[in-house]
Design a protein around this nucleic acid. Structure first.
Length: 218
DNA sequence: GACCAGGCACATC
DNA sequence: GATGTGCATGGT
């Protein structure tokens, strides 16, 4: 039986079409992007990543060897650049020390174990960890972000007090465990959030989900 | 010039 | 465990 969440997904997909996420040419680039995009507009992150590419340091060992000062300079457009330099280097230390710099080796670790390992890195919280797991490693985890909470709360699917793990469990209990589906769904939620559900944006009332059945909690 | 953006850690109570 | 704060750039 299809749940209301599946119907929402279908409605979003019919409206927006495939989103082709995550923008990035490699698992490493996706991981870097996941850290740089924390509380930051993607266009700023894209500038930072372009700088890293231009310097040919979008590679674990080379980026680590670059050092903090130069890294900070290159990622400056993404904001919080001193903080994010530290976070990137923490991530790099994990990749280099535990996997010899190989994201391919990292991908082979089982989902629950890899999630805990990512969460143990200072600067990688639940959303960043899950984004890396889903978009860089194709692991079936549902990524929850500010848009997901705001939209699902507005449509009375979750309560205001719901925390990250609550929202994630809500979604994963109602959807088939499918990385492809989770990938597209999260991307569609972000697309919807950007276009229709910005804070205090009256356009929210014409969003494609506005007439969705609010009471259906199946 | 104010507000916002694909969070997270840390201090304090 | 809840709440408040620092982190910083660039677009609207």
């Amino acid at each position: 039986m299809r749940t209301s969440l599946q119907k929402i997904y279908e409605r979003l997909f019919a409206h927006f079409g495939p989103q082709h996420w995550w923008p990035g040419d490699s698992a490493f680039e996706i991981g870097v992007g996941a850290i740089l995009t924390q509380n930051t507009n993607w266009s700023n992150v894209a500038r930072a990543i372009a700088n890293l590419k231009k310097e040919h340091v979008l590679h674990p060992a080379r980026l680590y060897a670059l050092g903090s000062r130069k890294t900070a300079q290159l990622i400056k457009p993404s904001g919080y650049y001193r903080l994010k330099t530290r976070r990137l280097r923490n991530f790099l230390q994990l990749i280099l020390s535990a996997y010899g710099g190989s994201l391919t080796r990292m991908k082979h670790v089982a989902l629950p174990e890899l999630r805990l390992e990512l969460l143990s890195v200072n600067g990688i919280g639940p959303e960043t960890a899950d984004s890396i797991l889903l978009y860089a490693f194709d692991k079936p985890v549902f990524v929850v972000d500010a848009y997901t909470k705001r939209i699902f709360e507005r449509h009375h699917l979750i309560c205001e007090e719901a925390r990250y793990d609550d929202v994630q469990a809500y979604c994963m209990e109602r959807l088939p465990k499918n990385a492809r589906l989770f990938n597209e769904f999260h991307a569609l939620i972000v697309r919807l959030g950007k276009e229709y559900c910005l804070k205090n944006n009256p356009k929210c009332r014409i969003c494609p989900l506005y007439n969705e059945n609010h009471r259906d909690n199946s």
